[in-house]
Design a protein around this nucleic acid. Sequence first.
DNA 1: CCCCGGGTTTCCGCCCACCGGAAGCCGCGT
DNA 2: ACGCGGCTTCCGGTGGGCGGAAACCCGGGG
Lengths: 251, 251
Amino acid sequence: MVRDGRIRDGAGAACAVRVQRGRPELALTELSRRAGLPLTTTHRIVGELAGWGALERADDGRYRVGLRLWEVGALAPRGLGLRESAMPFLEDLYAVTKQNVQLAVLDGTEVVYLERLSGRGAVNVITRVGGRLPLHATGVGLVLLAHAGPDLQERVLAGPLRRYTPKTLCAPDELRRTLAEVRRTGVAVSDGQIELIALSVAAPVRGARGEVVAALSVVVPAETSDARAYVPVVRAAARGISRVLGAPDSR
Amino acid sequence: MVRDGRIRDGAGAACAVRVQRGRPELALTELSRRAGLPLTTTHRIVGELAGWGALERADDGRYRVGLRLWEVGALAPRGLGLRESAMPFLEDLYAVTKQNVQLAVLDGTEVVYLERLSGRGAVNVITRVGGRLPLHATGVGLVLLAHAGPDLQERVLAGPLRRYTPKTLCAPDELRRTLAEVRRTGVAVSDGQIELIALSVAAPVRGARGEVVAALSVVVPAETSDARAYVPVVRAAARGISRVLGAPDSR
DNA sequence: CCCCGGGTTTCCGCCCACCGGAAGCCGCGT
DNA sequence: ACGCGGCTTCCGGTGGGCGGAAACCCGGGG
């Protein structure tokens, strides 16, 4: 895959091309530069990928991620599969609260957001479907970490813990106490730990064998005084999804 | 890619492995068989893909589509990008109708479903996020076909037109008239053409330069007597999305 | 206990498909 | 006309992927 420190093939190149914010189309030269591959090589690889549909050409000749790739991604059980089961409950939760409703799973040492329903009036937060954030600073992250294996917990607590706001919990012992609290109460409250304007209430979603497979949260404005009032509805929605996942769904 | 009729590489193998209905995890041997590749080769390729996160191993050692792949797919502008812009309008439409709400785009000679909000009470139809259906039999398909280039229209009308139900329109001239009607009225109504129990009302979503980039539909039970009543709301939602896409969204 | 069989993993030498330099093409601005 | 930056085509040398062989792992049955 990687040889003498240089990236040599398609998969590696894909790795190297980091997420594009803003205009999501890239020219060939740009791709070549970012991937660190010769222009000719990039041209060939990109051509093959486009032939298969993994990339598409925009009207101006630039390349963008293709619909085929989206389609294949849609087959991921932990992606759209989970989302599919959870959706009715997310809709209900959104209908009741009219706030941001988020569904996320654990991957490596981060959370990946699977879904986000955000009403017009809700707080505008940085999370994005398909986006990643660290475990220690988000409501869903704390829930997932609290129920993860001790090895992962230690790895996260040992690693560098980025401080997003003055309220971000970064001290390992403080985090340990919080995690114990999350396990005890079954919910996590992250108040301004990622963005000062937002507060999230999160609860675990469990799979068929009772293991935590995802986390659900509602994000409300930080100044909400009765944030605890959201705990029952979030918990109920999470339970609802867990029940659906538990039933092996005859189809 | 393909040499002397045999599939030789990862991309080709991925092509060959068709969508799994039911259990979405496959054993190594199964993959090898489906891809038509030697066991050893499959083992190596799958190992690399898993190392990168494109595949994941389930608890029992089987392989499934990984979260990384889902994540990359989420970057497709015509996938989640479009969906992101459309979501608030889909939610509104769902809130008003409490029926299935669908968003789809054109790819090749088929429609690909990007999103589907389905309430508990709504008709249970076969469409699935990430799924494909032919153009001639669905409401969204008729809308997309009606506004596509004449070359594509001819190709579709010439090709075999599968009959899903007795009501499916398969005669080319009849379809041509329908398409003209869709262009004139700006909406398509597909009554029991894909499943007898369902009727859908669809409208076009336009991009920044007025070109049709997607289609939106509401699916109601076939026995609904006042199906035409849904036309204004669907049209309004489609217009709303078009307006958002037209504004180049300063961010 | 040992053996058997199906699935999985490791090892390694041969060969061909991928790499990437060179050259040609296209379209724009001067 | 000419230069230039970006894209595409061509093709020969070679190193990385291919896949046969063999080892490994594990549950079941004699």
